[in-house]
């Protein structure tokens, strides 16, 4: 479903992605981890074309992201994305946030979008908070609205860019629960996260990145059982201590 082939990317003269290749099949949940500055977020932003890359090729469902002939808005509307800082639109209620792209991009009627939105709000456990503005919601609630907003587009895959990093500890689980439920339902997911518990429970595969390289790309069992690289071992020992 998502093919990443020999992707290189530079910010000026600094190379952020070095010959990244991987493949994510339909229904697979892949967790991407690694130290900060390792290029994880940059890599998943390349998948929906939010970040351009100079070399290599990424295709989503057969459509090449980097191709200038590709209709990027159309492709992006099929890939949901959830951000570290939620990025709900502050001047719209939760309901309006979720309805916006349904009506403006997919062309759904207001009634249809509202009905779909209500179902999604119920699904993420916020059924009666649709009238609230983002600033009136807790961080965990905002992130769940953001997930519902992405799901409203009926995406073929979902990208998560550190979805719990900006949350207070007591709110992390409510978001992870929604993501876990989503993974169980068969959604194709790429998740950049430091939540190794989530990776253990939910991921099929773990990609470990360091300094722009994909150092490990292994099944969950292999990664947590016997990581092959020293760098991955060092990383795991640091974050699993607690």
């Amino acid at each position: 479903m998502i093919e990443i082939e020999h992707v290189n990317k530079w910010f000026g003269s600094f190379q952020v992605l070095k010959d990244n290749s991987s493949s994510i099949s339909k229904g697979e949940v892949v967790v991407i981890c690694g130290p900060s500055g390792s290029g994880k977020s940059t890599l998943i932003k390349c998948v929906n074309g939010l970040e351009p890359f100079q070399e290599g090729r990424i295709t989503v469902d057969g459509v090449s992201v980097g191709d200038s002939a590709t209709n990027l808005p159309k492709l992006r509307s099929q890939i949901g994305m959830v951000f570290q800082n939620f990025e709900l639109f502050p001047h719209m209620t939760a309901m309006q946030n979720i309805c916006l792209a349904q009506t403006k991009v997919l062309g759904r009627s207001q009634d249809e979008a509202t009905e779909r939105t209500q179902k999604l709000l119920d699904r993420v456990g916020l059924g009666d908070l649709g009238y609230k503005y983002p600033s009136e919601l807790s961080g965990g609630q905002q992130q769940r609205v953001a997930i519902a907003r992405a799901l409203a587009m009926d995406p073929i895959a979902m990208l998560f860019d550190e979805p719990t990093s900006a949350l207070d500890p007591e709110m992390i689980n409510e978001v992870l629960d929604v993501m876990q439920e989503l993974a169980r339902s068969g959604m194709t997911m790429m998740v950049v996260t430091h939540e190794m518990g989530f990776a253990r429970r939910v991921a099929d595969r773990v990609i470990f990145m360091d300094e722009g390289e994909i150092v490990e790309d292994a099944t969950k069992e292999d990664f947590f059982g016997k990581p092959r690289s020293d760098r991955a071992q060092l990383f795991l020992s640091k974050i699993l201590e607690h």
Binding site: K45, N48, L50, E87, L88, L100, V105
Partner: peptide, 12 residues
């Protein structure tokens, strides 16, 4: 990030 979020959902 607001702009990115808009683009990510397919807005022009």
């Amino acid at each position: 990030g607001q702009k990115a979020a808009g683009y990510a959902m397919g807005l022009t």
